[in-house]
Design a protein around this nucleic acid. Structure first.
Lengths: 219, 219
DNA sequence: CAAATATTGAGGGTAAACCACTAGATTGAA
DNA sequence: TTCAATCTAGTGGTTTACCCTCAATATTTG
């Protein structure tokens, strides 16, 4: 017997899920709730095996709930349910312990399949969700490149200096390593601050890392 | 008619693919090559529509080839083929322009399906590949947490200071913002350097970003 | 070839960061 | 209720970073 808890703020939707699940002999909806805060004590009280969790819950949202439940009850299986097929939602909740992600337009058959598969210890994702993730993978580089072009290109030598700065070397250490004068390194630092629009070393390092400056094509 | 180029260093495998594709009326294998370097001129010469590309090629590897081809001929469709169902390979080549990823144990039917779907402008991934990506998504947080624990916990106040440092504020600016003395901020900076094992501000920022220190649970 | 950019270097100075040491008040966990 | 950690703050000093201005040589690009 699979003990299921449904957590979703849309009561009609909860009723719908329940009506589907109650027809199954091996599935039992032991409780339902309409906000994130109640989940924890209900899971305890009713010995819940599987949680059907809305991602966008009022109060404590689905991601927080998921994180929390995986700490207090790691063997609890969680399927995320959402209206939105958004890459950010999917990756957030999956990296926080959910074993499945299905959309709210999912049919009866698929819902039952998801519940049974996840309960068995495997994971389940609807085809649309998988497609969204693959698409976002393909777009990753485009996004990076778009954000890159805001900066003027950093020259080869400047990149060398930048790499050593990020590697915690001081100006004089860098000068010795590159066999150039201290003043030259200072010049490069100064150009870097200008080009990357940074106020100081902290900003230089942050901007360089965030924009992957060192990995850019050879200037 | 779909003009296909096969690039793979295993000749027997190339022959296998070709024997499958040649039976189709609307597919024509116009050329084949066994290393990355030849791809570019063959694509030009034979007016290739679709490239079946091994990820692990000698000379110029598949990812480099993919990147290059998307620059010189953006409308060329590319399907990556690999022996390995590895998350890193998949995400690397997909973010560099491939529209599909199939494994070398793929059957005849699936290969044809992939070629036709990708040629039509959509993308195609075998189920195993999609499963691998979803699994790696689910493990993302675990990896992060494992690498986190190497550092002693950074206190709440220290995190506030750290955030302002990363945001390019000087010690005196931070003191004013937090309504504390300059010397107190210096103390916090000093503890941060110790705790994160950094030599200077540059290291502090790098380590904080790389290890996602600011996003950790409330200390 | 000419113009722009990159690389190199300098003088002279101020601001910021870092170091060692100390120490009282507060607070949270054993 | 100790005890360790945190937050606070100081003295005093050294080192490093950053700013401005200037300039010769080299390399790349239109």
């Amino acid at each position: 017997m699979i003990n299921v808890l449904i957590a979703d703020d849309h009561k009609m939707f909860v009723d719908g899920i329940e009506s589907i699940l109650k027809l199954e002999d091996d599935i039992q909806v032991v409780a339902r709730c309409y906000n994130g805060g109640e989940v924890e004590h209900l899971v305890d009280e009713y010995n819940v095996d599987l949680l059907l969790l809305d991602v966008n819950l009022p109060g404590m949202n689905g991601i927080e709930v998921c994180k929390r439940m995986k700490i207090v009850k790691p063997d609890l299986k969680i399927i995320a349910i959402s209206m939105f097929n958004e890459e950010s939602y999917v990756s957030e909740i999956l990296s926080n312990g959910a074993s499945g992600y299905i959309l709210k337009n999912t049919g009866r058959e698929e819902l039952l399949k998801a519940v049974k598969i996840v309960h068995s210890g495997l994971s389940y994702f609807s085809e649309e969700v998988k497609a969204t993730i693959m698409k976002s993978l393909m777009n990753q580089n485009k996004k990076k490149e778009a954000s890159k072009t805001f900066f003027p290109k950093v020259s080869k030598r400047e990149k060398e200096v930048l790499a050593l700065i990020i590697d915690e070397h001081t100006t004089s250490e860098i000068a010795k390593k590159l066999f150039i004068s201290l003043k030259t390194v200072e010049s490069h630092r100064s150009s870097l601050l200008n080009k990357l629009n940074a106020r100081n070393t902290a900003g230089l390092v942050r901007i360089a890392i965030e924009n992957n400056i060192l990995a850019e094509q050879k200037a």
